[in-house]
């Protein structure tokens, strides 16, 4: 009798311990939000929010200090745009091919190799962008500067290609076979079936893949820190150097930013902006993925 009581107590204790482990993930999110907000409060006391959002210069460490996030945002958005211009079409085509066309053996060989591409450390991609892609592009575009957004964006696009294409492929493979068979029975080709039947059926999954891909590109750090140069630059011209939010954080922490200084506070303010943007994309992506999972 007593031993069964002890057994039950142990069970309860273990369940409690396991719950705490699972709940610790929530604690991490809370910690992220609390730290980002509390460390940037000092910044927003110093800089009005309206200046932060509308000033067109970002020179926090200069004597004539300006705190406008726009140059960092424009760098982030231009590079993400270039990356998406590569990753979305290529990822979609590759996913349609792998899911609707490729024989089993091709898929078994190609997918692990593509996964290797996403296993390459990002700093290695940075090296590749700076010392291989930029010199190569300069042969065609002589005005391209040594640090530029174009090659960083292109390399990020290739880097997240496997991620985007495998998310899209998952969504397409969740479409039941009978729907395809219906289309083939009507005499449709594979391409017609893929574009007019499978992709529309898997639409929310494909959209989720796009959104999660964008979020991944927005947060990419090392490629831009190495290859895009580290100077805030409010321009949409991809041939010029620029700085992203992530590269700015790297730049400041590489130097000396004492705890509580304005330099230290700016990285949390910039990080807060980045976190809010990616959080929005992640939640939208999660919601869309849940939807396609439930639809069949």
């Amino acid at each position: 009798m007593e031993s069964s009581l002890r057994l039950r107590t142990t069970e309860r204790a273990i369940e409690g311990g396991l719950f705490l482990a699972a709940f610790s993930s929530v604690a991490i999110t809370v910690a992220i939000v609390v730290i980002l907000v509390s460390e940037s409060i000092g910044f927003f006391r110093h800089v009005p929010l309206i200046d932060f959002l509308t000033d067109t210069q970002w020179t926090p460490l200069f004597a004539d200090a300006h705190f406008g996030i726009l140059p960092l945002l424009s760098g982030t958005l231009v590079i993400t745009g270039i990356a998406m211009a590569v990753a979305l079409p290529l990822g979609t085509i590759a996913a349609i091919y792998l899911s609707e066309y490729a024989p089993h053996t091709v898929r078994e060989v190609v997918k692990p190799i593509l996964e290797l591409l996403s296993a390459v450390p990002t700093v290695v991609f940075g090296y590749f962008a700076l010392l291989f892609v930029t010199p190569l592009l300069q042969k065609w575009i002589p005005t391209l500067s040594g640090f530029n957004m174009l090659s960083a964006g292109l390399v990020i696009g290739i880097m997240i290609l496997p991620y985007v294409s495998s998310l899209i492929e998952d969504a397409m493979r969740a479409v039941p076979m009978r729907i395809r068979e219906g289309s083939y029975a009507m005499g449709a080709t594979r391409l017609q079936t893929a574009l007019r039947v499978v992709v529309p059926s898997a639409f929310s999954g494909v959209a989720a893949a796009f959104i999660l891909g964008i979020s991944r590109a927005l947060g990419e750090t090392m490629v831009v820190a190495v290859a895009a140069g580290m100077q805030p630059n409010l321009t949409a011209n991809p041939l010029q150097p620029a700085e992203t939010i992530t590269a700015y954080i790297v730049q400041v922490t590489l130097g000396d930013a004492p705890h509580g200084s304005i330099g230290y506070q700016t990285i949390f303010a910039a990080g807060l902006v980045l976190f809010c943007i990616t959080l929005g994309f992640n939640i939208a992506g999660y919601w869309l993925r849940q939807r396609y999972r439930e639809s069949f």
């Binding site: 993930s25 991490i28 999110t29 910690a31 992220i32 730290i35 980002l36 460390e39 999660l212 979020s215 991944r216 927005l218 947060g219 990419e220 750090t221 992530t246 954080i249 790297v250 922490t253 990285i267 949390f268 990080g271 980045l274 976190f275 990616t278 959080l279 994309f281 992640n282 939640i283 992506g285 999660y286």
Partner: peptide, 13 residues
């Protein structure tokens, strides 16, 4: 969501 948070945000935290 945590799986999609940029790694640099973990660094800031």
């Amino acid at each position: 969501n945590l799986a999609g948070v940029p790694s640099i945000i973990y660094g800031l935290m």
